[in-house]
Amino acid sequence: MDAKQIAEIEVDVLLEAIRLRYDYDFKNYARASLKRRVHSLLAKENLEMPYQLIPRILYDQNIFDKFLSEMSVTVTELFRDPPFFKSIQEVIFPVLKTYPYFKIWHAGCATGEEVYSLAILLKEAGLLDKAKIYATDYNKRSLDIAKAGIYNADNMEKNSEAYLKAGGKKTLNNYYTQQYDAFKFNDELNKNVTFAYHNLVKDGVFGEMHMVICRNVLIYFDKDLQNHAFTLFDNSMVKRGFLCLGSKETIDYSVLKSQYETFSKPNKIYRKIN
């Protein structure tokens, strides 16, 4: 056995220790990114080899929390990927309008910026009162930030620009109050939002969703875990429901390929066939 194979065992044992101690299973995460993140944590902790993390993580919850932040580090922002937000107004909202009420599951919402982005657009379309949004993540710290709806105001200009590019009809400052270097979204935006803990690896279905949004989460999963999540989404979806993925994600290599039609190819919006 060569050194590289032994190094793989080290990572496997680390992940197994984490699973047994904290009930988080990273075994089916895309391995290349996972290893980068393990090595990033090693560097921050002044350690060299993955096995050195095992006793630290077993006995020190803080180190595990750091690992979890490392694993759920997210690039998210208001109206991330404006063409996507523009297209859901154009192609999905007209369908949602036909329901007396509808449910949306935003899986892997991280710190919630994109949930508020969606809520703003629903509000402008007169649909927010008919919506029930479930925004879930497996990082409780991220969920706390999402629930509070308070964000750093450093990038307001960029945020406003993205809002307009996404087809926002007013100005972004209608929706928040700013205080010094932070801003807080108005409570009307999240009154129909339930922020909840949910781990795509081990938790079950959410019922009867008309739209499932899961963007830039599945890229961190291997194919098996991706298929597991896709099946979870499918089982949570009403007939003719919409599945929205990140701009570089696809169902092409998944179990859903033949069961969903492409509704907007560039914006990765799929629709359940029946």
Binding site: A30, R31, A32, S33, R36, R37, V73, T74, V75, N216, I219, Y220, D222, K223, G246, K248, E249
Partner: peptide, 18 residues
């Protein structure tokens, strides 16, 4: 805007890590 990585199974994966 995405990192591109190679997986042992001979597939490509993307990441939006920092």
């Amino acid at each position: 805007d995405y990192h591109l990585l190679v997986e042992k199974q001979g597939t490509l994966s993307l990441s939006d890590d920092e």
